[in-house]
Design a protein around this nucleic acid. Structure first.
Length: 417
RNA sequence: CGGGGCGUGGUGUAACGGCUAACAUGCUUCACUUGGGAUGAAGUGACUCCGGGUUCGAAUCCCGGCGCCCCGACCA
């Protein structure tokens, strides 16, 4: 991609009403646009990052056996009345509206009901289980207070996975596999070293649920970490009984601020019973399906990465989710022609080699290009100028470490591949 | 939802109740410049959030609304 063609531009100042670091940097660098409180548009750069995150999650969940589908956002009131979740007294963040004929509908804030109901038409036998399905979908939640930039909006893209098992043992096995998939996901998006599986209270169907909490000062939650064991407990679960159960000493715990980037929990037969999702076992006996639910907020991951990894110059993306791998910067000289030609040639080579490159071909002074590059946070910066041409080498700078190397074209391409 | 704060060109700021609402930045044009957000010149861009009120006179004071941010309660 040529930067002269890229929508949109960087800016020096963030709007004064954005206080959250993630929103300030993402707006300044041109990744997102704020439509209204709690609703952000993803611009081309932002969408590239979001798609990378999505790709990683998709791979890991597919490996878990999840089948991707896309459910509707419009929700049927009748279904939710059957589980007693339609009433505002029970769920207070519904966006509700009416069809032209007066029928009540809701905008989905989660999807247990419709998916469970859908499956009840297809799952009849133990042979149909276990099964799991997931989607990436915009969830709508009428939050009393949107906050923290893209970390907590009124609409947000979420991966929600639901598992359906014959019994508790089968569910438990799936749940354990999901934990591994989640660990892989947070590892791969670049948050592995600061994300902890956190024990939380489980509700009526299991002792615990598990939150995935990423340590950052921007976090809203307090978690208590056993760094040696690599696990944590949240505030509600911080009791002697729980600590004994999971084998953690209170003395080993460190309190830290963290943000919940994902969570998994067992649903038991709550929804399958209410919505009659049953199956016949080998003996012909009718049994309710045992369910689990597994969520991840994609925008929240993106915001958390910005919060956790950026520096005073701007964003620092992990390679795995960066919008581009390389940022090729042309520094014009007096006549400009030589550097331009060399950069065009290199850009073609990089593209041919499959290295995603943003080429800053704008007619701007070097200082501005470097500042923009740091702000945008693309992992590798390549500079082509009269100086590099004279030296017969390309300059490669690593955004995260600041390390600079001089490389030949072939070495450069080999390095970035 | 409770509490607090703030609304002025696209963005960031200024303006005692009193002149054509100022400065920076952005954007357009020209010149010059090219390894860390240059420089000069000329342009462009605001019913001062909306609606009422007080006043000879309101960006400024008062009332109401809307919007935005922060703290709390709740969530990916």
């Amino acid at each position: 991609m040529r930067q002269s063609q890229l929508f949109t531009k960087t800016r020096k100042d963030a709007p004064k009403d954005e206080v959250a670091k993630n929103a300030q940097l993402l707006i300044r660098a041109g990744y997102v646009y704020k439509e209204m409180a709690g609703a952000y548009t993803y611009l081309p750069l932002g969408l590239r990052v979001l798609s990378k995150i999505q790709g990683i999650i998709r791979e890991e969940v597919n490996a878990l056996g999840g089948q991707e589908m896309l459910l509707t956002s419009l929700q049927d009131k009748k279904l939710w009345e059957r589980t007693n979740r339609w009433s505002d007294a029970v769920v207070d963040n519904w966006f509700k509206t009416k069809l032209a004929n007066g029928t009540d509908v809701g905008l989905a804030f989660t999807h247990e009901e419709p998916l469970t109901h859908l499956l009840s038409e297809y799952v009849n036998s133990y042979r149909d289980l276990p099964f799991s399905a997931y989607q990436f979908q915009t969830k709508f939640r009428n939050e009393a207070r949107a906050k923290s930039g893209i970390m907590r909006g009124r609409e947000f893209l979420m991966k929600d996975l639901y598992s359906f098992s014959k019994d508790d043992a089968e569910h438990k096995a799936y749940y354990e596999k999901a934990k591994v998939a989640y660990k892989n996901i947070f590892e791969r998006v670049g948050l592995g070293d600061r994300t902890y599986m956190t024990f939380a209270l489980g509700g009526s169907f299991s002792k615990f649920s598990h939150e995935y909490q990423t340590v950052t000062d921007a976090g809203e939650d307090l978690i208590y970490i056993d760094e040696k064991k690599g696990i944590a407990v949240n505030k509600e679960a911080l009791t002697d009984e729980v600590l004994a159960e999971i084998g953690v000493n209170r003395a080993d715990l460190v309190e830290k601020k963290a943000v919940e980037v994902g969570n998994i929990f067992s649903l038991g037969t709550k929804f399958s019973s209410a919505l009659e999702l049953n199956y016949k076992d080998e003996k012909g006996e009718m049994k309710p399906v045992v369910m689990g639910c597994y969520g991840i907020g994609l925008g929240r991951i993106m915001g958390t990465v910005v919060e956790a990894l950026s520096d005073d110059k701007g964003i620092v993306w992990p390679e795995s989710i960066a919008p581009f791998k390389a940022h090729l910067i042309v520094v014009d000289s007096k006549d400009g022609a030589a550097a331009r030609a060399a950069a065009d040639k290199l850009y073609a080579q990089l593209t041919k080699a499959g290295i995603e490159t943003l080429c800053d071909d704008r007619d701007q002074r070097p200082g501005e290009k470097f500042a923009d590059s740091d702000l945008m946070g693309i992992p590798y910066r390549i500079v082509v100028s009269d100086k590099t041409i004279a030296a017969g080498a390309h300059e490669l700078k690593h955004r995260a470490s600041g390390k600079i190397e001089q490389l030949s074209e072939s070495d450069l391409i080999a390095r970035l591949k």
